[in-house]
């Protein structure tokens, strides 16, 4: 049986996490290709609806990546994002989706290594969890 390849969406804030991802690239660090980044101005912009939409459409995991605590370019956006993710995790459990599928992480723009490490670990974790239950019913096909 082929290894399960999860699809992971990473909402990355422009000022830190997205820059860290670029840094990881410029340092030629390898991380799993399963992670696809959507750039947002601030992690505080990531709506619970965006995360739920990603899960509904079949994403197996969602990362919300912002600046380090206290370093948010917009002061407290990352704090709001963390609150939202924490709230959502409780809600996911209620509807039978593992809370671990959604995670808030923080990093500074210079932390390319941290970005690569976090995405690698998260991908592994999701791989262990298996496919998003939303997908479990239908047959899963790889994106062309």
């Amino acid at each position: 049986m082929e290894q399960f390849e999860p699809t992971i969406v990473a909402f990355c804030c422009h000022y830190c996490a997205y820059t860290a991802a670029d840094m990881a690239g410029s340092m030629r660090l390898v991380y799993p290709p399963n992670v696809k980044i959507i750039r947002v101005p601030c992690s505080g912009k990531v709506d619970t609806l965006h995360i739920m939409k990603a899960l509904e459409k079949g994403a197996d995991g969602v990362l919300v990546a912002g600046c380090l605590e206290g370093d948010c370019h917009f002061k407290t956006g990352n704090v709001k994002a963390l609150q939202r993710v924490t709230y959502l995790q409780g809600y996911l459990e209620e509807i039978g989706i593992e809370a671990e599928r959604v995670q808030m992480v923080t990093m500074s723009a210079g932390m390319g290594g941290r970005f690569a490490r976090i995405t690698t670990e998260f991908t592994e974790k999701i791989r262990e969890l298996g496919p998003n239950p939303v997908n479990a019913g239908g047959s899963r096909l790889a994106a062309s």
Partner: peptide, 11 residues
């Protein structure tokens, strides 16, 4: 943002 998610996750 939703369109990007659709684009990514379309099967």
């Amino acid at each position: 943002i939703m369109a990007r998610l659709e684009g990514l996750l379309e099967r």
